[in-house]
């Protein structure tokens, strides 16, 4: 991290980043981050809920291959559909990103439930975690590490989805910002943007994922 900051300071000191319009860049990054956060929130709730319900139900074996086929559809191939239904709007980008982020979360949770030790499943049943209560008291906490790893992968895919959709649809955001900078040949803006995204990813990792991963490995270690 100190390397990134050092590089930015050096480039600024030498006047290389002088031509960057920081307000525009900041606004673009904020828009993209907001869309990603919103999309992640929806994908997290939807993905884990569907996975928990499917994992709990006797239909899990039947639905797993269906989900597998669906998640293999290249998400960018679906962008015309999203544009058709939602137009060139911020909502369209958010929902498009949801369609990408949801799969790692859904599959991580389903796999965690599917691969749970038989004895642990039996213990939950014997001691009363039956019916819908099983989801709240057993399957959801069991899936916590999977939700976490699914989220980390999902967010990474989400950045690509949101920025990619912004580039394709020319809707304001970081994708649109670097597309314009690239077409105008302003490489400083692209470099500054890349640095800014790296900082966000780093901060997110240090403040959110790293503590959660540490807690997960502390509690869930065998």
């Amino acid at each position: 991290m100190s390397g990134i900051i050092g590089a930015v300071l050096l480039l600024t000191a030498f006047g290389y980043l002088g031509g960057v319009t920081w307000v525009n860049l900041g606004t673009a990054i904020l828009l993209t981050t907001y869309r990603l956060a919103f999309a992640y929130g929806i994908a997290l709730v939807l993905g884990s809920t569907i996975a928990l319900l499917v994992g709990w139900s006797p239909l899990a074996e039947l639905l797993f291959p269906v989900f597998d086929v669906l998640q293999n559809i290249p998400s960018f191939a679906l962008i015309p559909l999203f544009i058709y239904f939602f137009g060139f709007t911020s909502e369209m980008i958010i929902l498009f990103a949801v369609s990408s982020i949801i799969w790692p979360i859904l599959f991580a949770v389903l796999t965690a439930i599917k691969s749970a030790h038989t004895d642990l499943n039996d213990a939950a049943t014997i001691f009363g975690a039956r019916g819908l209560r099983r989801i709240h008291y057993y399957l959801a906490p069991l899936s916590f590490p999977a939700i976490l790893t699914g989220s980390i992968v999902g967010i990474a895919i989400g950045w690509e989805a949101v920025i990619g959709a912004e580039i394709i649809t020319n809707i304001a955001g970081f994708g649109n910002y670097i597309r314009e900078a690239s077409s105008l040949g302003i490489s400083q803006a692209m470099i500054a943007g890349t640095f800014a995204i790296l900082v966000i990813v780093f901060v997110l990792n240090r403040l959110v994922w790293a503590p959660l991963l540490a807690e997960s490995s502390r509690r869930y270690a065998e």
């Binding site: 213990a123 057993y138 906490p141 069991l142 916590f144």
Partner: peptide, 14 residues
């Protein structure tokens, strides 16, 4: 009924 498991089967998050 209750059961004590060879593998303990304790809930790791609790």
């Amino acid at each position: 009924p209750a059961m004590v498991f060879q593998s303990y089967a304790l809930f790791p998050w609790l």
